[in-house]
Design a protein around this nucleic acid. Structure first.
Lengths: 209, 209, 209, 209
DNA sequence: GACTAACCGAGACGGTACGTCCCGTCTTAAG
DNA sequence: CTTAAGACGGGACGTACCGTCTCGGTTAGTC
């Protein structure tokens, strides 16, 4: 992680290890901020959410937000991540291609019907803010890659995928295609697309090299 | 295109067809604005460029910018597009895989060494501004897809790619992977990646379906 | 006047002499700001007036205030000065002591019943802000001294005051006593005090030296 | 004294008379706070001193300051008063005018070279805070008036000043003139001014009435 | 050759949100 | 019960830009 002149409180306390002095962080405020962020996100869309708006909605001082998060994107990311934490279930039917298709259908569905705008907003921020880009990579991107990696790895173990296949490359292919359509909106993230990607991985790459 | 209450001058004059009386658009100002945008882009990065900054740098009234462009992103897109217009050359060696690899290597190189930050900035804007998203799609994305489509289409004609292959899907795969790495920066856009993608298209998909 | 890195617009335009470019200053906004300042002053007292409050009350952007004034004190000073411009009438009965007493009674009355709190507020600001202190001296203090000087000077001409009397010192004495009671509030600014001061100047100093 | 809903600890303990159980007030903290206040006063000027700054500088909790003082002005007043407690010596040469001049020269000197800014700062606060105004009057103003009153009273006893002279009025005159110059800075508090005031009191008023 | 219309530079305008400072209060654990 | 520490809700600050507006002035084509 890059060195920061001005650490957030949570980073400072993490460093100092046992910082017990002073009034402890308010869980109520923490929760209220995340709830307010989600509410505003729903009500007005990513773009219209502001730190000031969140603070007002959560009946919280702006400083309390700035104490614990670096930007509105970080707040929204945490709110969104909590809200969807348990949703990245990895199916396990015994067949890689089936699992992959199921997994993608579910992801596409979520992105199409609810999460799409938020995810686009978060990515928008990451593209102009390197600090947040790292957060997004660590918290969001990495966990999705891990889920996909699980599916593919099981495929390798079962012999459905050649053991010489570059799994990270395959992940880039699949998620790349997904993000490309998510961001550009030139084509839908539908069932057909999920099937095409699953078949590519299941059939096309099975024989590769 | 979405209906707008307030058309830009270029749209209006395009509609009316024959330009009417009055002082004509200043080419000098037009050029100065694009030049200033590029200069600021280089000097301070996408995020720090503002309409006000461009106007000041170009010694131009803000209104003159708003008369001809909808946002700073549109200005930068035009400046950037002009600046790289002739760069999307499509190689034609007689072999699809070779052409594809060459094409990708060149694109990756440009994105890694110069254009990356600007392209990320433009995409950032497109993600929160539907109007600009359409501009980006029309002006930037579409032309790159066309170039790639040319290469693949020639491959089909030569029999290097099955005629039943879904070319648009292949384009999504290739550009998806590229953008995914460009945006997330979790892995480099290097020669190896170009080769992997070319081989996938050349070998792996040759037999598909 | 001390050199300033950041000149106010009025200072800049004064320097450049003929600055005609750009939208001219809005008289309506100017007047609305002063009116709002006075209104808030009345309604909530000096301390509770804020730039933000004035801007809101005047339906004006904060920047518009900062463009033309350095601080809320400057705004209030201008509003207050306009509001009381014609009030510093110099009586001319033909007798210095009578004139002086009348003049003081009127001033004391105003300070006791309306202006006192504002004047205390302005002085409070001047005491911690050298820039404003100069404004207050130039705009407020100087004009009151001039009025008193007029009265005393006429006294000298009529022979009611020795021509060797140090008029500036007498002004310091009279206004000093007045401010001292105004600021410390340890004794009232009443008719008796006005008479004591007038007698001092009329009798006591007539013979001095 | 005005009725307060929330008494300071020192007022409470004074009322209850016998201090109760629990950890006693820390003299070290008390001293550290006053020292820190003085240090910051010197280093950055009255305006830049804040409760938070004092607390940090003194390694003291903010609450500890609020427990014993009402505002930063009260802290600074106490620090300043202790620091200059023994300085208000009343000279006694046997001659009122000489004593007065000496007394004023010393006061002017102090105000010109060290205390001026602090005193202006304290007065600034008193002008917008009635509670502190009372403190300043009680602690600061009253003691200086007492000293001057001593000098004048001795003059009356010796016959140097008419017994019918309104001493409080004379005090207002002398201190008024001093404060007026101190606050407005339109003229210096120099030896000449001290002499003028002393002569006024010694000569001018001796004969008056 | 004047008229007229759209352009241009400059920059003021109302407004939104920013990120910071400091206020005075509160909530901990430690003494 | 005090203390150091520091989080809290809150108010205001002064700034950055937004997109719009209003000036004086410029530069064509049309009457």
């Amino acid at each position: 992680m890059a060195a920061k002149e001005k650490l957030l409180r949570k980073d400072r306390t993490a460093l100092i290890k046992t910082s017990r002095a002073g009034r402890p962080r308010s869980n109520a405020s923490h929760a209220a901020i995340l709830a307010a962020a989600l509410k505003l996100l729903h009500a007005k869309g990513y773009r219209a959410v502001t730190i000031e708006g969140i603070a007002f909605e959560a009946s919280v001082g702006k400083q309390t937000i700035y104490r614990w998060w670096r930007s509105k994107a970080e707040v929204i990311l945490e709110a969104f991540a909590r809200h969807t934490a348990d949703r990245i279930a990895v199916p396990d039917s015994g067949n890689m291609q089936t699992d992959l298709e199921k997994f993608l259908v579910k992801a596409f569905d979520s992105l199409t019907h609810e999460a799409g705008e938020v995810v686009r907003g978060l990515m928008s921020e990451a593209l102009i803010d390197p600090d947040f880009a790292e957060s997004l990579r660590t918290i969001f991107i990495a966990s999705r890659r891990r889920a996909l990696r699980d599916i593919l790895f099981k495929g390798v173990q079962r012999g459905e995928l050649g053991s010489d296949v570059d799994i990270e490359f395959v992940i880039d292919l699949v998620y790349g295609a997904m993000w490309y359509r998510l961001l550009n909106r030139h084509a839908p993230l539908n069932h057909r697309f999920a099937r095409q990607l699953s078949e590519l991985v299941g059939d096309g790459l099975a024989l590769s090299r």
